[in-house]
Design a protein around this nucleic acid. Structure first.
Length: 422
RNA sequence: GAGCCCGUAGCUCAGUCGGUUAGAGCGCCAGGUUGUGGCCCUGGAGGCCGUGGGUUCAAUUCCCAUCGGGCUCCCCA
């Protein structure tokens, strides 16, 4: 029998110490920008009731029909959350956040789960950041949501992308449009892809999103929703576009952008990048004015987006953008002999109390090996301690970048260390 | 759910038209410098050639299966 061997589950990865710095940098950027926009962080459980996701995301969506990790404990059915809009709204309703007054401006960062075949830019556990503005129907909310999303990419330096924008209308506009669309497509029913034939009955607008070649010629000539928006929705869309124009955020109008979640109303948008390969969506979102009520709250308008963090990092790699801040070690204490080693162990806390990062050999190795390790850890200084130094209370501080050494008392050397480095 | 590709050292990859002890670069460890890193030199450790079966005198190499991984379609972050 072979040695036991364990791996991460399919489509899930370990984020190793080489990679965590860029994740932390990205997370920090998100937190900082969210603070500038006055958004507050929300954290919700990894598990949610199956019913919430089914109702929230939509029974017929791909996410619900084939991508959910579901399990049961006793009589309770759970899923690993596949997205966070429905859970955040659940939390909003559960904790009566509407009673706090004003508009809730929430953001989140965390892992999501979808049981798909993994490929580039697609994992079964992946990470999203996003935000939800709950309680405002005003176009300003849509505009700020998109502006925040763009600000993250702007700050990181990703500029090669396309922002697609559409309005999928309010229920009234949408109902009218659906009927028109259905009427238009019905004569071609048998010529549509198999999938789209099913959509024709259940959710005809999703046909617009189809990438099946046989559907394309019908989509190209299909009526567009803009012509069927009622006055309110048309005005809302105009105001969103005007706001984006004013902010200098460029976009292209895509009347066939529908998106995969059922809850979207009015504004829908998607950010895609040519640097990602096949899975090219960096982020997407829109308005969901019906979801809060659908989940059990009062009718409450809302808008939000979600962005894929792995995809953002892939784009960074393609563009040679480094998010890795070089975290250096301030002092590595090199010790020779047992007495010196004990002394070093006792001295580390003092260095740390001065605000420095400090480390030492954990293996009882030679001086040369310790110097090599100090070098590998990118130590700025080594403090060299042997029997002689302990006796004379004169220590050697080696600047590893300059390759220079200073001899002196601990007080003298520490004052050197705590001076701002050039 | 379907298709294509790939599994040889920690990593990136050679190689074997089937034939004794399977290689390189990088990395790791040690020595060259009995108290000094990065460069250089020398040496060392580290592989059941993914796993199981078949063909064969002989399989890491050929065949089959299986497991693992990557990419693609659909759809999404």
């Amino acid at each position: 029998m072979a040695k036991p061997s364990y791996n991460t589950p399919l489509g899930m990865v370990d984020i190793l110490p080489d990679e965590t710095p860029m994740w932390r940098t990205l997370e920090q950027i998100i937190h900082e920008e969210a603070a500038k926009f006055n958004f507050q962080e929300i954290r919700t459980p990894i598990l949610e009731p199956t019913e919430l996701i089914k109702r929230g995301v939509g029974q017929l969506t791909d996410i619900v029909t084939k991508e959910i990790f579901a399990f049961q404990k006793g009589d309770t059915h759970y899923v690993l959350r596949p997205e966070l809009t429905a859970p955040v709204v659940r939390s909003y309703v559960q904790h009566h956040l509407d009673q706090r007054g004003g508009v809730q401006k929430l953001y989140y960062i965390g892992p999501m789960f979808r049981a798909e075949r993994p490929q580039k830019g697609r994992q079964r556990q992946f990470h999203q950041f996003g935000l939800e503005v709950i309680g405002s129907a005003d176009p300003v909310a849509d505009i700020e949501t998109i502006a925040f999303m763009m600000q993250i990419y702007e700050r990181i330096g990703i500029k090669n992308f396309t922002l697609k924008l559409n309005s999928v209308g309010d229920p009234e506009s949408r109902e009218r449009y659906k009927n028109v669309l259905k009427e238009y497509l019905e004569p071609y029913r048998t010529q549509l892809s198999e999938l789209s034939q099913q959509r024709l009955d259940k959710n005809p607008m999703r046909i617009l999103d189809s990438k099946e070649p046989e559907d394309q010629k019908f989509i190209d000539k299909a009526p567009i929703i803009q012509d069927y928006l009622n006055e309110d929705s048309a005005l809302h869309f105009e105001q969103v576009k005007n706001g984006l124009n004013m902010l200098g955020i460029s976009y292209i109008l895509d009347p066939y952008l529908v998106r995969g979640m059922d809850y979207y109303t009015r504004t829908a948008f998607e950010l895609s990048s040519p640097d990602l390969g096949s899975q090219d969506a960096l982020a997407g979102g829109g308005r969901y004015d019906l979801l809060v009520e659908e989940i059990g709250g009062k009718p409450t308008p809302a808008v939000g987006f979600a962005a894929g963090m792995e995809r953002l990092l892939i784009a960074c790699e393609e563009l040679n953008i480094s998010l890795t801040d070089s975290t250096k070690l301030d002092v590595y204490v090199v010790s020779l002999g047992n007495a010196a080693r004990q002394w070093a162990l006792g001295y580390l806390p003092i260095l740390r109390a001065h605000g420095m990062s400090a480390s030492m050999d954990y293996s009882g190795r030679s001086m040369k090996a310790q110097m090599k390790e100090a070098n590998r850890e990118l130590a700025r200084f080594t403090l060299i301690v042997g029997e002689q130094e302990l006796q004379d209370e004169q220590f050697v501080l080696r600047d590893m970048e300059q390759s220079t050494e200073t001899k002196g008392s601990l007080d003298e050397l520490v004052s050197l260390l705590t001076k701002p480095l050039s």
